[in-house]
Design a protein around this nucleic acid. Structure first.
Length: 575
DNA sequence: GCCGTTTTCGGCCCGACTGTTTTCAGTCG
């Protein structure tokens, strides 16, 4: 079993949770959580670093001890320390700790005094009224625990919401809040603003005139199902969709500091604050203070400048090198939607799309693009009405015909060609050679071993007509796991033979991830940001790809489809 | 457990809200 970075992070987080319940040193616990975060956001595979015997203590937050533990996990697949902890305490406690209003102290109290080992037993205790007898617990807490335990039993644990869905839910609320009397500014912060592919909850920040009733207005929004907290400056509600929204109100003079603070990430904020500490600056959501005097905070720029940094875009704020880059004034000039000249994956009625080639072309042209690659499926993908050689020939003829209607726009002759089990392509080279851009993808036999899957794609890339690897991991966020594949090895080979990697912009795919985008940039593979549109409206998914690319530090030059048509074709041609 | 332009010890980000208390611990972000 290959060890992924997420496996290592998971083990460290579990150790941290157990130590937390045992009331061990908070800073030691934090060290485990920091290490987990470092490993998660790393663009390189840690197992690979171990294999090459690289010095892991160079990673931030990883010292001698944790480096040894990472090595142990990579080599044995497990961590003795965690196994010991699991013998000492029931693992069900960790699930309990994930419940709201329950943290390490309460888990400990429940376990030691009532012998509660998991959420199921917790629910029974709450039902029996045993919990409110405990010191520090009361009727209200017991009721909350009971309700949440029941909710978890019925619906499973709460999961993160895709950015696209969060957007749909939050926009009407913003429109509603915008009508508040005395409102000055309203801005979504948090992971939503950082454009993470999924968000846990939504943080909204506002500034208002004195006496504004925004909090009252917020908690009486028609879609509010439950009010978790309501205060003068902070309130939290759960909407009917299950999404939690927090609203914070600050004074105008604190707006920038608050925006930095509530945009996060937490790790980024901590790093910024530490930086401030060196200059005796105290940074919080109200401003930047020196000897209790406010020296900055009205705008985000002010806050960054106060610690001698250039402004850092929200998508980069993960404490993953952006602060060091800002120090050196070396931040990437991030890709923007307007940098793109076209879309390199789309489908028509000919396979599984909903519109004709003409309709798709018209829509792409309206978006200001210079080109659209129509990439209907090849024959192996029969379910989607994949095209055989004859139909591809006809399709090519049709592209040439439709292109005659345009002067400054063109459809690119293309196909989404299936990569077969043995690594060969689903169409003969005689046909592929007639296409301008060949997009290749795995659709079947997803469950191969990492080694075989990697070999399969590498084999396919040997074909001189292979240009772009589409949806490279096959994941669907929250629904389908990525298949096992060594993308680092594949990207290195892409540099050698002139292939490209796709960032599929479908908001439920966003395949590849931000960390893989960063890896592509570091390795030197150009990324094609493509919508994989199956309808006209899907062409608008492009912005999600842009968000993801920005999170992956991509600059216009790193992105294949920023090129005008002619240079694109030149770049794509192999030989 | 990590870290260092105060470097091998003594620090480690900061504040709001709730519930259970009578001044604050626990949780959360």
């Amino acid at each position: 079993m290959p060890i992924h970075n997420s496996d290592i992070a998971d083990i460290f987080n579990r150790v941290a949770d157990f130590l937390d319940i045992q009331d061990k040193n908070q800073f030691r616990i934090r060290a485990y959580r920091n290490a987990a975060r470092t490993v998660t956001s790393l663009s390189k595979n840690v197992a690979g670093l171990v294999e090459k015997d690289e010095d892991l203590t160079r990673l931030s937050g990883i010292g001698k001890d944790l480096a040894g533990k990472i090595k142990e996990i990579v080599e044995t697949g497990t961590l003795k320390q965690l196994e010991e902890l699991e013998k000492e305490m029931p693992p069900g406690l960790l699930q309990m700790m994930k419940m709201s209003t329950i943290g390490p102290k309460r888990v400990k109290a429940l376990y030691e005094n009532l012998g509660v080992r998991n959420i199921k037993e917790l629910e029974e205790m709450a039902k029996g009224g045993k919990i409110s007898d405990l010191e520090g617990f009361g009727q209200k807490t017991q009721q909350k625990i009971l309700e949440e335990a029941q909710r978890i039993r019925k619906r499973g644990k709460a999961h993160r919401t895709r950015l696209v869905k969060a957007e749909r839910v939050i926009q009407p609320l913003l429109d509603y809040l915008q009508e508040t009397k005395g409102l000055k500014k309203l801005q979504v912060a948090g992971s939503f603003r950082r454009c993470k592919e999924t968000v846990g909850d939504i943080d909204v920040l506002a500034t208002c005139k004195r006496g504004s009733n925004i909090m009252d207005r917020f908690v009486t929004y028609e879609d509010v199902k439950e009010i978790i907290a309501k205060g003068k400056t902070k309130s939290s509600v759960i909407l009917r969709t299950g999404l939690q929204v927090d609203l914070r109100v600050v004074q105008q003079v604190s707006y920038g500091a608050a925006l930095v603070y509530f945009t996060g990430s937490k790790a980024h904020n901590i790093a910024i604050r530490k930086r401030g500490q060196k200059d005796d600056l105290k940074i919080n959501e109200y401003g930047v203070f020196k000897n209790d005097e406010r020296v900055a905070g009205k705008t985000e720029e002010e806050v960054y400048h106060s610690v001698n940094l250039t402004y850092i875009e929200p998508e980069l704020r993960e404490n993953n090198g952006e602060i060091e880059a800002a120090v050196q004034n070396n931040l990437p000039d991030l890709i923007e939607l307007s940098d793109l000249n076209g879309d390199l994956q789309s489908h028509t009625k000919e396979s599984d799309g909903k519109f004709s080639m003409e309709e798709m072309a018209e829509a792409a042209k309206d978006l200001g693009y210079e080109y659209l690659a129509v990439t209907d499926h090849s024959k192996r993908v029969a379910m989607a009405g994949g095209l055989d050689e004859k139909r591809v020939e006809k399709q090519i003829e049709k592209v040439e015909k439709v292109n005659k209607n345009y002067k400054n726009f063109r459809i690119i002759k293309s196909m989404e060609v299936d990569i077969l089990e043995d690594g060969s392509l689903d169409l003969p080279n005689s046909i592929l050679s007639e296409l301008e851009v060949v997009v290749c993808a795995v659709h079947y036999h997803r469950d191969m071993s990492r080694k075989k899957q990697t070999k399969r794609v590498l084999k396919a890339m040997e074909n001189p007509f292979f240009h772009i690897l589409a949806h490279p991991t096959g994941r669907i966020i929250g629904e389908r796991e990525p298949y096992e594949i060594d993308l680092e090895e594949i990207m290195k080979e892409m540099v050698n033979n002139g292939c490209f990697i796709e960032l599929n912009a479908q908001p439920d795919r966003l395949d590849i991830s931000d960390t893989y985008c960063r890896m592509a940039r570091e390795i030197g593979v150009k990324v094609a940001i493509s919508t994989d549109a199956h309808s006209i409206s899907d062409l608008n998914f492009m912005r999600f790809g842009i968000y993801q690319g920005r999170r992956g530090w991509l600059e216009p030059d790193d992105v294949l489809n920023t090129r005008p048509y002619k240079s694109l074709l030149k770049l794509v041609q192999r030989n």
